[in-house]
């Protein structure tokens, strides 16, 4: 087991996809902060552009919010990191990486060299998950650092740290949610043996294409039990990633942690079951 983790960690370091996704993490972090700055500049010139009508509609696609205070006042580091991360851009890169990394062994057949020699074949999944967890950790660190550096470059002394603990809590929760998402994509890859399918499915979920499905489920539940105020989206990874910010209550934060852990555990267990029961091609 420990040997397999060492193997997958070594593969992680020597895979082109690892470095390409890290590079894209840098590019997207810079791009996101620059776009937020463009938004702030536009609001400076036309303050009405920041006036948001209260709406219950959920937007599809990748978008960033901006705080009206950012136009003239100071900008807290945690707020910017939270805004950029919950936009879902990092989740998309996580999806791309998880799909490529978890399916590589099946795609090129390397799994045939090792799977037979490990009677506890489920360990192959745990080691892959461990390597993915390491990469997501670094992706989050890089994304946050680049966001901070770009923010300093753009806003200088207006960009300040504020309190550190809420940032850590937020990053921890988002880490678990992103990890859960990666585990789900790994399960898709193992199950379908297709990088294209798992990547496309993941990107569509990130961009909100599952929301209509959640609405249908909510409507069905409301029809069955009208008194129950249930929203399935609250228990899904994508909705939690976009909902959880620095400002949310601890209840919502805890819910995010639980959702991330539950998705990780269930996805890993199902992927282990599949790789154990299915013949290696």
């Amino acid at each position: 087991m420990f040997n397999l983790i060492k193997m997958d960690t070594h593969r992680l370091v020597h895979s082109t996809s690892t470095w390409i996704t890290l590079l894209f993490t840098v590019v997207l972090a810079v791009f996101s902060v620059v776009m937020t700055n463009v938004y702030i500049q536009m609001a400076k010139e036309d303050p009405s552009s920041l006036a948001v009508e209260p709406t219950e509609e959920i937007q599809l696609g990748i978008y960033v919010d901006a705080n009206p205070e950012w136009v003239t006042g100071n900008i807290e580091i945690g707020d910017i990191i939270s805004t950029e991360m919950k936009s879902g851009v990092l989740a998309i890169i996580v999806v791309v990486f998880a799909a490529i990394f978890s399916n590589a062994e099946q795609k090129n057949g390397y799994i045939k060299n090792i799977a037979g020699q490990f009677p506890r074949r489920g360990n192959l999944i745990i080691s892959k998950f461990a390597a993915i967890a390491i990469q997501i950790f670094w992706m989050m660190i890089v994304f946050s650092l680049i966001t901070v550096i770009t923010g300093f470059a753009l806003w200088g002394s207006r960009f300040y740290l504020g309190s550190f603990m809420p940032i850590l809590k937020f990053l921890g929760t988002q880490y678990l949610l992103h990890l859960g998402f990666a585990a789900l994509i790994m399960f898709f890859s193992i199950f379908t043996r297709s990088t294209a399918f798992s990547m496309t499915a993941g990107i569509l979920i990130c961009t909100g294409f599952a929301i209509p499905i959640y609405s249908i489920i909510n409507k069905l539940i409301a029809d069955i039990k009208p008194s129950w105020d249930f929203n399935v989206g609250n228990y899904m990874l994508d909705r939690n990633i976009t909902q959880i910010s620095l400002a949310v209550t601890s209840d919502i934060m805890v819910r995010g942690v639980v959702v991330g852990i539950v998705f990780s555990v269930i996805s890993v267990l199902f992927a282990m079951l599949i790789i154990k029961k299915r013949d290696i091609r």
Binding site: R11, H14, S15, T16, A104, E105, N108, G109, Y110, I111, K112, N113, G116, Q117, F118, P119
Partner: peptide
């Protein structure tokens, strides 16, 4: 099983390594 080495069908290798 760890005492068995295998080459089944085409060699499974990482092409970029």
């Amino acid at each position: 099983m760890s005492r068995i080495g295998t080459l089944i069908e085409s060699p499974g290798v990482y092409p970029n390594m």
